[in-house]
Every structure is written in C-alpha cells, then in structure tokens.
Design a protein around this nucleic acid. Structure first.
Lengths: 234, 234
DNA sequence: TCAAAAGTGTTCCGAATACACCCATGA
DNA sequence: TCATGGGTGTATTCGGAACACTTTTGA
C-alpha cells in the first residue's frame, strides 16, 4: 500500500468502498462423515437457499475477531479452531452491493457440531464430500466450500488440523475414518497406524473403548504435537 | 453472509466501511537469489521505509484485476503469475485508517524482475531469504513477506510454481539452485535430478548452455505439467 | 592434462504396502 | 464357538540418499 497521492485525497464520503464480510465454513466429523453447517436464507436475495453463516467486519475488530463473533452469534459457539481460508472478491458475487468476503474454516468436534446444529436456528448440515448432491447454494458459497474441501484434503495428512475434529480421546479407527473421508479414498490399515504412531503426536491413554461385539480399541489422545506447520499471522 | 436484518438497514453513509487494498509481493530469482521488489515510501507515514507496492481495490474490479492493475501501474509489468497469499486485517495495521489488505504473490522471471527494478521509479530489491538483514519495513509488510517466504518454501517442491521464476529454457542446476534458495538448504544432486525428471514436467530441448569452463548442461523446458495442485477460485 | 561441473550407475536405507496371523470381546 | 474388528509381525516393493564414477568442456 503506497498510493499516497490517492490516499491523501481519499474522502470516504466521496469514494465508495466495498463492504467486507467474513464467511464461516463450520466443519464437523459426525458418524464418519464430514459435514458443514449452513444457514437457510430467510429473505431475498437467494431466499430459501443455503448459505454460509457470515457477517460484516466492524471497524474496531480484526478479521479473526469478526470470525469469532460470527461463530458466537450465528452458531452459538465459543472458541474453535479458526483458520483463514481464502478471500473472495468477484465484483458481482452479491447482487446487492460490492462485498468482499474473507472465508474462515472452523473445525468442530462432533458434540459441538451437533449442539450447534440443534441449538442455533436455521442451521442445516450437508455432506462436505458430496457437494454435487447439495441443492444450489447462495452466492458463490459452493465455490467456497470447494476450496475448503480441497484445503482440508491437502492438509490433513501433513498437519495436525484433523485432531480438532475428533473427541479428546479417540481410536485409531476413528482417525483413519476421518482421513479416508477427507481424502475420499481407502487407506491401508497397518501403514496408517504405523505412520500416525511414528509421528509422536498420539499419546496412548490406558483406556479402551466401551463398545460393541469385538475387541475394544485403545483410546489415544492428541499430544500437543511438536513444531507443526503453522501459517497464521496478522 | 446472511446478516439481512443488518444488511437491509445498512446505509453506506452512516456506517463506516474498511478500505480494501491489494499488496503485491513481487518475487524474482536473480543470480541464484530470491529477491523481492519494494517501494521506498516518499511520504508519511513510514516515510523512507520500504513497502510493498499496492493500491486500493476499486468498486468495479475484482481482487485479481486490482492486483493486475497494481502490477501494471507500480511495476510496469503486463501479465505475471499472480496468486492470492493471505488477507491481513488487524485493526491498527495502518495508522491512517482501517485498511484490510489482500496480499498477492507475483512470480517474475529474471529479465522481467530486473526490468521492473530498473524501469519503475523507487523500486528496490531485497533478499527474501534473509529478511532479518533488511531494515524495518513499513506497516506489517515484514509479516507479509514472511508469509510469502513460507508459502513459497512449502509449495516449491510440491507444485510447479517454481518454473515461473526461471527462464523459458533452464538447466537442472538452475532449478536446483532455485529450490535450494527457497528451502534454505542444500539438496542432493542426483536425487534432485531424478525426482524432477521422473515427474514428467521437464522436456529436454536438444540444446546445451553456452557458458564457461566446464561441460555444458542440457537446457530443459517446462512442459505444461499434468494436473498439478490448483487453488484459485473466485 | 587439469579443473570444474554435468551426468550416470550402483548400493543402501527407510517408509509404505500387502498379507498372514493373533487377540479380545459379545453373542 | 464363532464372527468381528483390533492389533502385530514379516516379507516385499518403491523411492530417495549417498557415493563413486564417467563425460565434456575451457583454460
């Protein structure tokens, strides 16, 4: 930013500025499926269509703060793993006015996801891995979901983001189901097992699942992780 | 975005909106070093400091169009590989007003980079891989450069972005120098060689470099690349 | 003929895979 | 006792790393 000639003569009342919003992709892993929470629009435009929960960025809050506020107000959730996804700025992406939207991804564990789905009004869950089967979404939100899906797919095996989708204690089978859902392919059991254990991210709790008609699996806990890949400034 | 109650009562004259800019990280690979082009600020604030070239996003242009325009006006360049990097939105990142900036990375080949450095007024090149040695930059631009450096480091071995920094015909040594500069580490010669050739991205031109006191290396060309990793919607 | 860097072949090692087998539980 | 899925051990395959070696040029 170095447009000083323009900047000094820049009069907010004279020159239009775009509006800026944040849109949230709320992802959960429930019943071995990756789901996203969308809001059914109650008014025009795109009335009746599903849309990402979002809101305007106020002058006194950062993008992250705006995202956290939307998470609170629209989904009734406190903290969650929030990560900036991409910024969408096509001129006509919203018919009402010029709106630039910064998309964030929030990864929720299953109880939180289900609580939000039941608790907040108008929230519906759809399958993130089968976007073709979803009825048309509002605005360019289908494209945003596509980017979110691709990002999750690209990062889940190289970073620790997946654990934000699992309960505090989980089995290796759950972890593998999550990876398989995100990648859309089956994974070799013992190879996956070894790879995950060799990473040093998993801490065995002595406990085992109390479940069904077979040998109970051991429950693991996500141990903080060593220096993982980070990417979140500003 | 579903904030209709707010939206319908939203009066641009009443509610302030943030300004939105694009900032460009112009990266080149010259003399086996990764460099970035910065503009010396001629006026307050941060007068005399180096800053990323940038500009406001107009109402009738997309973010990509704004980035291309800045590339043209500030660096005198036509087309270039432009990729969105990250959006910076801290409240106080600019002392004059609330400015949200969408950063883009442009990868330039060496002649283009040098031409821009010489041609456009006030442009200075600094070493991207040695940001600590650079005098303090304006605003949060040092953080932006850090994100750009990390992104390049993370992608250069997994995608084909590196070729945008090389001339149309290049030697494997040049390609390896580029990767070593981006990663900040030495790479094994034959392993690198085999890995690159096995990818099917490189097309041998029959030609060889006309150069110095040793066996001339073969010149390769970047062949379109198969379905590489993409990530650029809206 | 020597220095320097390009380019190749061979071995070694580790990670991923495939697969066989054992273990623990409910029915 | 059987079915089911958890968990382990072993052989195989594949790719990268290491390293020695040959090739080709200018000086």
């Amino acid at each position: 930013m170095d447009d000083d000639a323009f900047l000094f003569s820049y009069d907010p009342a004279t020159y239009d500025r775009p509006s800026v919003t944040v849109d949230l992709v709320l992802i959960g892993f429930v019943d071995a499926r990756l789901s996203v929470l969308l809001l059914r629009r109650a008014s025009a435009p795109q009335r009746g269509r599903l849309a990402l929960p979002g809101g305007f960025v106020a002058m006194d809050e950062s993008l992250e703060q705006a995202a956290a506020r939307v998470l609170r107000d629209k989904a009734g959730l406190g903290a969650a793993s929030l990560e900036q996804l991409y910024t969408f700025g096509a001129v006509d992406r919203d018919p009402r006015m010029r709106i630039i939207s910064v998309a964030y991804v929030a990864l929720l564990d299953a109880p939180t996801f289900v609580a939000a789905e039941r608790g907040a009004a108008g929230l519906h869950a759809i399958d993130l891995t089968d976007l073709e089967a979803v009825p048309p979404l509002a605005f360019d939100h289908a494209a945003i979901l596509g980017v979110a899906r691709d990002r999750l797919r690209g990062k889940i095996d190289h970073s620790d983001i997946g654990f934000a989708l699992l309960p505090e204690r989980f089995t290796l089978r759950q972890l593998q189901d999550l990876h398989e859902a995100a990648l859309g392919m089956a994974l070799n059991k013992s190879a996956f097992r070894r790879r995950m254990l060799d990473r040093g991210w998993l801490e065995p709790t002595g406990e085992r699942e109390a479940e069904a008609s077979h040998r109970p699996a051991e429950l693991f806990r996500f141990r903080g992780a060593g220096p993982a890949r980070a990417e979140r400034p500003a």
